[in-house]
Structures are given as structure tokens and as C-alpha cells.
């Protein structure tokens, strides 16, 4: 049963993260509404990636990481002792800055997750479905057995998105997903992300302010590990409340 739309898909409450005693995130609280695109922006080292990785428990893979506060997924504590982090990462998938296809065929890349989780249905149909969702099917349909590493960087990134979608997540986390791509490939990824809106909740950490402005419904601005401002993207980009946001967006030092 789908939870009611009023329950945020993900939420952070008083979330703080440190690495070897150094604070990366400080007392961050925010809610991510279902089916929306949320951008996280801020200067290098502000905690964008750390926040993103909190949402699928990837920080705990880092030695010396300490997380305090709560992260809730569909209202449940994501960090509760009985929660399986692997299942968390299936439901909350992640796409990284550099495309990371496996050294396998296009088909096997997409089929990898479903196979690993014991998928019993029509694998070919699933692969076609998610490659179509990722806008890649027309380009690779005739060469599903070709090595994924032979694809262009933009195609590889869309393949990675398809691979993430193949395990039917409800949230897609994207960490600078287009920073390694040219403008054309970037535009395709953005169109893809836009098409996923509604079906998936997408959270994008990005340095590209225009990308955040173009794509997202909501934008969070982090600075020095603090959540400075979070709200509708149009408000943040036209009339930010906090002078720190204004300074960052206009490129002026404080």
C-alpha cells in the first residue's frame, strides 16, 4: 500500500554527521515530499554529499563516521537496528558523479540488480522497460550484448540510472550526476530526471545552480554543514530569505 502523500518520503530530524570528530553536517532537519525533485546546493565541503549519503546509509561505510539525529523513510527510522542497509540501498538508489557501469554487457548491467535480488519475472521485459524509462532503449536495443564500457559517458550515466531503476527504488539520490558530461548529455539526463518526477522522488546534489533552478521543485542550501535555507526553488532563486543564500547564489563573498 502506498503511504499517503502527506507523509514525506524522507525526512531528517536534527541530523548531525562528523568524520573523525570533524563536523560535516550540523543539526539538519528537512522533509522531502513524495514524487518531487529536490536539489541540494552549496559550496564545496558544505555537506551536500554527506547529506545525500545519509539518506541511504552510505556514510556508515566510512570509517570514523558518526551520525546523530534521525532519518526517516516513509515515517520509519532508517537507522533502526533491525533495518537492513542493503534493502535501504535498494529502495533508495544512488547515481554517482562518474558513470560506474560494470565491465559487463549493457543487458547484464541492468539485469544485475534484479538477478541479485532473485527477480522471477520476465527479465528481458524489465530491462527494456527501465532502459526505455532511462531514454536509452532506442540507442542500445540492437546491441544489448555490447560492453557497457563502449557506450559514451552520457549513455553510461543513463545506463547507471537504468540499473538503479531496475530494482524498483522509490527514491533516487544523484550526486553531481552531470558534472562529468557535456551539455548535450547533461540535457538528456535532465530530461530523464524530469520524466521520472512523480514516479520517483529524486534528490540531486549539484554545483550547477542553473541545473538546480531548471530541474527541482525544492532547493536546500547548505553552508558549512548548516541547512541555511530550504524551500520552493522559485522562491530561493528569486527572493531568498537568508543573506547567506543571496551571497552564494549571486557569487558574492560575505
Amino acid at each position: 500500500m502506498t503511504p499517503p502523500a502527506s507523509v514525506p518520503v524522507l525526512s531528517a530530524e536534527g541530523l548531525s554527521v562528523s568524520f573523525d570528530g570533524r563536523t560535516a553536517l550540523s543539526n539538519v532537519s528537512l522533509e522531502l515530499p513524495r514524487g518531487r525533485i529536490v536539489s541540494i546546493i552549496g559550496p564545496s565541503g558544505c555537506g551536500k554529499t554527506t547529506l545525500l549519503r545519509c539518506f541511504n546509509r552510505m556514510n556508515e561505510l566510512v570509517e570514523g563516521a558518526h551520525t546523530a539525529g534521525a532519518v526517516r523513510f516513509e515515517g520509519f527510522d532508517l537507522y533502526a537496528a533491525h533495518v537492513d542497509p542493503v534493502e535501504v540501498r535498494r529502495q533508495i538508489g544512488m547515481v554517482f558523479q562518474q558513470p560506474t557501469p560494470f565491465p559487463k554487457s549493457v543487458f547484464d548491467n541492468v539485469a544485475f540488480g534484479p538477478r541479485a535480488s532473485g527477480f522471477k519475472g520476465d527479465l528481458h521485459a524489465l530491462v527494456e522497460e527501465v532502459l526505455s524509462s532511462a531514454g536509452l532503449w532506442p540507442e542500445v536495443a540492437a546491441e544489448l550484448d555490447a560492453p557497457a564500457l563502449a557506450l559514451s559517458a552520457g549513455q553510461q550515466q543513463r545506463l547507471c540510472i537504468a540499473r538503479t531503476l531496475a530494482v524498483k527504488p522509490s527514491v533516487l539520490l544523484m550526486d553531481e550526476p552531470t558534472s562529468a558530461l557535456d551539455p548535450t548529455a547533461t540535457a538528456r539526463i535532465e530530461a530523464l530526471v524530469h520524466s521520472l518526477k512523480g514516479t520517483y522522488t529524486v534528490v540531486i546534489a549539484t554545483h550547477d545552480l542553473q541545473q538546480a533552478a531548471r530541474l527541482s521543485d525544492l532547493t536546500a542550501f547548505l553552508d558549512g554543514g548548516d541547512l541555511v535555507e530550504y524551500g520552493p526553488t522559485e522562491t530561493l532563486f528569486t527572493n531568498p530569505r537568508d543573506p547567506r543564500t543571496e551571497s552564494y547564489l549571486t557569487g558574492r563573498a560575505r
Binding site: L209, Q210, T238, N239, E246, T250
Partner: peptide, 9 residues
């Protein structure tokens, strides 16, 4: 320049 915020206004 793609202005935003106060510059855009």
C-alpha cells in the same frame, strides 16, 4: 550572467 535572487529582481 544568468542573474538570480536580488540581481534578477
Amino acid at each position: 550572467q544568468r542573474p538570480v535572487a536580488g540581481d534578477l529582481r
